[in-house]
């Protein structure tokens, strides 16, 4: 089932700047991300979505693995954990299961989540423990200087696919859906306002939410794949390369071919893991 994100009032509609400071750790900016890296745009969308939900910093735990995207927790004033490559989901599972009152957010990248962390990713989706997973998907390993990732399109150039990748990529959303995630969506850094609404819905959803977020790595992916600059890259990959669920529904299939669909792609109601465990405890202890 496909659902549109619910509309809400946001500060930028009041035409005044959003104040990110209550969510940021003071003195940690500028961040380490390169000029033009989309990760900062994604983070800002996330913080606006959190603000809209009214969550308290104390009640949020952000867990990450290794890579550029995994540096996100260092900048936010939550209960944060920067862990090991691919393992963020498993660490987050421990945090959430031990204290289900915490709102757990995992920030991860395409390599972190789908290569080295692939097993943890699918099992997190299967368990349906309440957490929101943000996959910052830029097709490349940025932290180690531009190796190809499992989401890299066929033919794309990286330091480990110099003559063009011969591997088919993963579709993060299809993978998450198949593995059992109960909320699956896609956004881009370019569509930052839409992303904020999508993240708002993802955070609000009870169960495992996966949001695949296309953002740009101009330093490596852009340079290797003949993109002139980050703006051109965002335009060709994120703006022109994608289409919203609503647009896609209106157009004939031949017009949407080759386009990546943005928006909420899958939603399902299923017993959340910690609730299921509580039921088990009630059963065992009342025997």
């Amino acid at each position: 089932m496909t659902t549109e994100a619910t509309a809400r009032t946001v500060p930028y509609k009041e035409k005044k700047p959003f104040d990110y400071d209550p969510y940021l750790r003071q003195g940690k900016l500028p961040h380490i991300w390169c000029a033009g890296c989309g990760h900062g745009i994604v983070l800002k969308s996330l913080l606006r979505a959190i603000d809209a939900l009214g969550w308290k910093n104390d009640d949020i735990s952000m867990v990450s693995g290794i890579g550029c995207s995994s540096r996100t927790p260092g900048y936010v004033d939550f209960n944060t954990m920067h862990t090991l490559h691919g393992r963020a989901f498993a660490f987050a599972t421990g945090v959430k299961f031990a204290n289900p009152k915490l709102n757990v957010i995992v920030t991860t990248g395409d390599g972190d989540a789908l290569a080295i962390g692939g097993n943890h990713f699918i099992h997190a989706a299967r368990r349906n423990m309440d957490m929101t997973i943000l996959v910052y998907n830029n097709y490349i390993y940025g932290m180690t200087s531009g190796q190809g990732s499992p989401t890299m399109p066929e033919g794309a150039v990286s330091t480990t696919s110099r003559f063009g990748s011969i591997e088919p990529p993963f579709d993060t959303c299809e993978l998450a859906k198949t593995a059992g995630a109960t909320f699956v969506a896609r956004g881009t850094a370019f569509h930052a306002q839409e992303l904020e609404k999508t993240l708002y819905e993802a955070l609000k959803h009870k169960g495992t939410s996966v949001v695949d977020i296309l953002d740009s790595c101009p330093t490596y992916y852009g340079r290797f794949n003949k993109h002139k600059n980050v703006s051109e890259m965002m335009k060709s990959i994120e703006k022109d390369g994608t289409i919203s669920v609503a647009q896609a529904a209106k157009l004939p299939p031949e017009k949407t071919e080759g386009k990546i669909v943005r928006g909420i792609l899958h939603r399902a109601e299923r017993l959340e893991y910690c609730d299921g465990y509580q039921n088990l405890l009630d059963r065992v202890q009342n025997k």
Binding site: M81, T83, A90, K96, F97, N119, H120
Partner: peptide, 30 residues
């Protein structure tokens, strides 16, 4: 479960030890 504790069978060995680190951060003895 009899004492209200949390038990989880993880997807692999690495996940198991990762989960207990997370649980300790959330205040449990694990």
């Amino acid at each position: 479960p009899k004492v209200g504790g949390k038990f989880i069978q993880m997807e692999d060995e690495i996940g198991s030890i990762a989960a207990i680190v997370g649980a300790v951060a959330a205040g449990e003895k694990a």
